[in-house]
Computed example of a mutant assay.
Amino acid sequence: MTHRLHIDPSLHATYKSLPDDARRDLAVCLLDALADPIAHSAPYGMDDGVFRTIAHGHTAGVILIGDDTITLVQINCVG
C-alpha cells in the first residue's frame, strides 16, 4: 500500500527554503517512506510505530504514520 503525504504549508515553506541537496535528500526519504514507512524509518524516541525518523545525508525529518497517510511534522538540516 502506498501512503499519502501531508505537509503543513508552513513546514512546506521550510522545505522549499532548504538547499537543493537537502531538499533532494528529504524527498528521497519521503518517497521511500510512502511505500513502506516502518522499513524506511527509525524509531523517534520510544518505538510506538507512529512517530518515526527519516534521514539521509545532513537532513532528517520526523514523520507521523497514520493508517494510509504520512505527515511530515519536523525538518532538521545540518549545514
Score class of each variant (00 low, 15 high):
L64Y: 14
D68N: 13
A22V: 02
R52H: 08
A39Q: 06
A33F: 09
I38F: 03
T71R: 11
L18V: 02
S10N: 04
R24D: 15
T69P: 01
M46Y: 14
D67Q: 07
L26V: 09
M46A: 07
A55S: 15
R24Q: 15
T71W: 03
D47F: 12
A33D: 08
A60D: 09
T14F: 01
D67N: 03
H12I: 06
D32F: 14
D47R: 07
H12R: 12
D68I: 08
V28R: 07
A33K: 03
H40N: 14
D32I: 05
D67M: 04
R52P: 07
K16R: 08
L26Y: 02
A60M: 06
P43E: 09
V50E: 13
D67G: 06
L26R: 06
A33S: 13
T53P: 00
I54T: 12
L31W: 03
A27R: 13
G57P: 10
R4W: 01
G49M: 13
S41Y: 02
I65F: 14
G57W: 04
A60L: 08
A55E: 15
L5C: 11
L11V: 02
A27V: 06
T53V: 15
F51P: 00
L11N: 01
L18T: 01
A35M: 14
H40K: 07
D8R: 15
R24V: 14
